Computed example of a mutant assay.
Amino acid sequence: MSFVFDIEFISKHTGVLGAALEKKFSGVASFGSANRDQVTSLDRLDLLKDGKQCNAGACFVRPEHKDFLPDHTIPLLCQTPWECCVRLMRALSAEFFLDSQGDRGIHPSAWVHPDAFVPDSCTVGPFVVIEEGAILGQGCILGAHVLIGKNVNMGKDCRIDSHVSICHAYLGDRVCVRSGARIGQPGFGFVVTGSGPVDVPHWGKVRIGSDVVLGANTTIDRGTLDDTLIGDGTRIDNLVQVAHNVQLGKNVVLVAQTGISGSCRIEDQCMLGGQVGVAPGVCLKAGTAVAAKSGVMRSTESGAQIAGIPAMPIQQWKRQVIYLKRLFSNDKG
């Protein structure tokens, strides 16, 4: 879809001023590929390596880096170039792509229970199943082959991509669930007896706040007796496992292939790198940062930075890595 915008549009949505108000643009592109009709950003000087030049018509750039731009590129001076570029991209998406999801309404192949509530402003794709008592908010979009289970309640403007199943769950507003995710299935809970494992019934729900994004093929288990909780603004990457009774605070970030064991509590603003594992019942206090591939066995204090298996304060982990490197470099065996 083609579109045209100008410096005034950029200023309105990013707060960044630029010269040449009459200049028109047709898109946003990466630093290395942008042409003179596009906007880009220069937030790292390593983008200039190998003699790369900026060919964009305008570029978000810090004041101290503007001299790296050629004369034909309009400098859009700011302290956070990439953040401003993202704001522009979001504004363009809202302005020009808002109705690009297809016609509103229910596809003929979808099945909606008579006791489910689907507003006319929703879009329900092919082969969707919406079970008894489910309630969708205004403006929700459901992709093909989505299952919305019995009594699921969704807020407004949620987007559920194809092949997602949501059961025993409540979703806030503007929740985005990527393809293949599974929400609300029973957790991996059992009691070991003399005759073998006995499965524990799961009666809890999954409660997801507003403005949450859940990645493709991520799984969030329902609680055993209490609910599994996902706080407002949280971002969960692809292929993440969140077990029963986990409590995630606001604006938590979980990167791909992370696994959170049952009954963990991860407070506001925590960030976990890829392939992190968290043992059952651990509490990560607000602002904790966990390096990729770490195994977290113990709870942390607020603002902790940890790494390693088992995870430890990151400076201690760095010293151990340096020590081992020296130890084996001196090993004559």
Rank of each mutant, 00 (worst) to 15 (best):
K250S: 12
V192G: 06
S294G: 10
S100I: 06
F97Q: 12
D161V: 03
G231A: 08
G125W: 07
L47E: 02
K52P: 00
S11E: 15
P197N: 11
D227A: 00
F127S: 01
T80H: 07
S11C: 14
S261V: 00
V242Q: 05
C158F: 10
T14N: 13
P75A: 08
G27Y: 10
N55G: 02
I74Q: 02
V112G: 01
E267Y: 08
A56L: 07
V198A: 08
G209N: 07
V16D: 07
L77A: 09
S11K: 13
Q305Y: 08
S299E: 12
P126L: 04
D331N: 04
I160F: 04
I130Q: 01
M312E: 14
A94H: 02
K332S: 10
V152W: 13
A94Q: 05
E8D: 15
G187V: 06
Q316H: 13
D71N: 10
S162Y: 01
A34W: 09
V28D: 04
P310V: 10
L327A: 12
Q316P: 01
C140D: 07
G143V: 03
I314L: 10
T123E: 06
N238D: 10
A56G: 04
H65G: 00
M312I: 13
G133Y: 03
W82I: 00
L77Q: 12
G57L: 07
K293N: 11
N217P: 00
T14R: 09
Q315R: 06
D37E: 09
S302W: 08
P313I: 05
K52D: 00
K49T: 09
E8K: 15
D226N: 05
C176L: 08
R265T: 15
W203H: 05
G209H: 08
V146Q: 07
P126M: 05
